[in-house]
């Protein structure tokens, strides 16, 4: 397994009252995304644990794209991945953020 961490500064603070939200399942070709509120001056931190070793650059591109599209801050995002494709990761992140902003589960 490989652990990767990404940090982006200058994000727009996401809803302050939103509750922690989980999307997805830790299954083959899938991943779970946990989104939690955390006050850190608009920064977003993303911690990835993935079964697929050696794909750091692709994760970097997917996360850059995610931050470019949403630009949200004050979030801690934690991911457990079992070899999901970049498209699935992007969709799962979008689903998690949508649920999070919708008021949590």
């Amino acid at each position: 397994m490989e652990r990767l961490t990404f940090t982006y500064a200058g994000g727009r603070p996401a809803t302050r009252n939103a509750k922690a939200t989980l999307a997805g399942v830790v299954g083959s070709g899938n991943l779970e995304v946990l989104v939690e509120p955390v006050a850190q001056d608009g920064a977003v931190t993303i911690e990835v644990t993935t079964a697929a070793v050696g794909f750091g650059r692709i994760w970097q591109a997917v996360m850059d794209d995610f931050f470019a599209r949403h630009g949200l801050g004050d979030l801690r995002i934690s991911i457990n991945d079992v070899g999901a494709t970049p498209a699935v990761v992007s969709l799962r992140l979008d689903q998690a953020i949508e649920t999070y902003l919708g008021g949590g589960q």
Partner: peptide
């Protein structure tokens, strides 16, 4: 809940993906 991160200690030792809620 998942954010408590009460996860399997065994799976991590086996280098196997674990879930935040242990399923």
């Amino acid at each position: 809940p998942p954010q408590e991160r009460v996860m399997s200690p065994h799976l991590l030792q086996l280098d196997t993906p674990a879930a935040f809620d242990d399923g």
